[in-house]
Design a binder for these strands. Structure first.
Lengths: 334, 334
DNA sequence: CAAGGTTACGTGGAGCGTAAGGATC
DNA sequence: GATCCTTACGCTCCACGTAACCTTG
């Protein structure tokens, strides 16, 4: 058993049991992989893949167990190389981030642009997904870090670091009946109104839905989407009242949209950076946290990953207090 | 980076940074290890060990991280080989068990003898320790399984499987004042009496101590030990009243000792088999569980380790109900 | 000088790629 | 015949052991 054999094995599994395709992925020849696979099977004494004629038909049950173990081994080997790269100050590599559309579209651009300026040699891969899927992808190991929001406790697995807090805004087209409201918005104002908001608000445990239920009402969604840009578009089209993250408001939205004074109508949200405990953090990944939320010291992240949980993370600032990114454009409220 | 290099690295670390000694452990030559270590350090780009002159003085901080990761890799490589060995029906290997003296001396002999009859090619290594240390050793990875008792919840880490339940017995020399007691023992009978019991009873959270405290008293220990044989010896010598596990009573003790009717004076204990989640169970290790406690199906253990936690383990029988081992010799009570 | 580590050298084996040889659809 | 896996062959490189050398108590 060698690391090469295990790498080939996982590559074959990931290529859908196509050895030829797997060989391209690992920059080797197909006979090379075939032979190493055979050797591994000979050493272990059983078939990792069920053959149908000469091609691979299935992973055997024991083969799947071996592949799972092999993934751990390869991940730890990558970790060792990451430790080495960090120590050498070798700042090249990849950074895969799962997050929601809102974060990817409105929060991350400034931070990632700055990150690329500091570390030109890295490749950043954004994987925007629905609220419900982000952590799943992350836990399946398809990303180095997740950036996700909750109204309350930190998300499940991994080390969660609070980046900033934010509120939802309620947005209507200029000229909408609610646009002229001379007092802070109340929940009753929204009952019965067609709403345009995030897809995740449809879930029964969503905090928006709960807010309505506490007032004895049920929200009436005209249209939902994961994409705040789309939500704004439908609000402009007059489909209803938009409710989405304040980060998604831009200066130019003031032309035709108005953000209503919603105060603490909906519970406050926290955006978290989530790291995998089993993955060594590259220096540039830790730097990203500091670029989004300057109150964080990247070294604290490294310490947290080593299990030395700091007693408590600093209370994260509000989005609009953040220097390089956050503001609720004054023109929108006026 | 190769598996061999990582094996050598860990061997050097385990040999106390003595390459020559490490080489013997891995059945290779010292120059071989020296060279592989150098190659690994060259590839990673930093020193894993701090050199003092030509000999290794210290592990560098990053080196320690690499060693920790390497241990995981090697453990998973062993797991893969274990999967293969199980599947091949290749029943040779080692089985390291951490447990307490009482289990090792009175519970395990019959089961392990039977195990060796079924699997003659295995090597069993018992590591008896104090109650407090067993789980520590186990969690440090120094054993494949732990066998440990608690009065209540399952012990911390790993998958815990209840084997059997048991009670403490109160034992006095024949001729002792309490030996003639014509009614069930009460806690007041023991208050003030010099006691001989397990070392772990000294701990403030011990269930024996708590039982006394609930009666408003404090136990008076004349002598403690981890070793039930020693406790019996000191009871015979007249140092006090013995309190220990019923498993430690043997037929021949009836000659000079008497077990008092203690009923449910002290809380019931459960003996658990604890498995590491991150370690593949060899077939013979699973078999051991069934040999101690026949109500267990070894296949359920495998399933539990795979994370398919069975809703609940069967309520374990009492020790004295177990077929091949448990009985409270009648002569002792009479 | 004893203990422990490094460097040098020759050998055997193993991994790789190229090329040819079956299966299966 | 197209696709995909296996077998065969030759080259290259690398891991290993032996032996000689160096360093430090």
């Amino acid at each position: 058993m060698t690391l090469t054999q295990l790498r080939y094995l996982v590559a074959i599994s990931d290529a859908g049991l196509n050895i030829t395709q797997a060989a391209e992925h690992v920059h080797a020849t197909q006979p090379g992989l075939s032979k190493q696979l055979k050797q591994l099977e000979d050493e272990l004494g059983f078939q990792l893949f069920a053959r149908k004629g000469k091609s691979l038909a299935n992973v055997t049950p024991a083969g799947q167990q071996v592949i799972d173990r092999a993934r751990i081994i390869l991940a730890e080997a990558r970790n060792i190389r990451a430790i080495a790269a960090n120590l050498r100050g070798d700042h090249q590599g990849e950074l895969a981030i799962t997050t929601t559309h809102t974060q990817a579209r409105f929060v991350l651009p400034a931070a990632i642009a700055e990150l690329k300026r500091l570390y030109p040699a890295i490749g950043v891969h954004l994987k925007p997904h629905g609220d419900a899927q982000v952590m799943g992808l992350f836990e399946r190991g398809e990303a180095d870090l997740a950036i996700i929001s909750t109204t309350g406790a930190a998300p499940g697995d991994g080390v969660a670091v609070p980046l900033f807090r934010w509120r939802r805004v309620v947005v209507v087209p200029r000229g909408h009946a609610l646009a002229g409201l001379q007092r802070p918005l109340r929940i009753e104002d929204l009952v019965g109104q067609p709403l345009v908001s995030y897809e995740s608000s449809l879930r029964p445990e969503s905090s928006l839905r709960r807010t309505f239920e506490e007032a004895g009402a049920v929200p009436n969604f005209a249209c939902t989407s994961r994409d705040a840009d789309l939500i704004k578009t439908y609000v402009r089209a007059g489909l209803g009242v938009g409710i989405f993250a304040e980060m998604a408001l831009a200066e130019e939205d003031a032309r035709d949209l108005k953000a209503l004074e919603a105060g603490s109508l909906f519970p406050e949200c926290t955006t978290w950076l989530v790291l995998r405990r089993d993955r060594v953090l590259r220096a540039y990944a830790a730097a990203l946290a500091g670029l989004i939320a300057p109150q964080l010291d990247p070294r604290d992240l490294q310490r947290a990953l080593n299990g030395e949980e700091p007693a408590a993370w600093p209370q994260p600032p509000y989005w609009r207090e953040l220097p390089n990114a956050g503001f609720l454009p004054a023109a929108l409220v006026a």
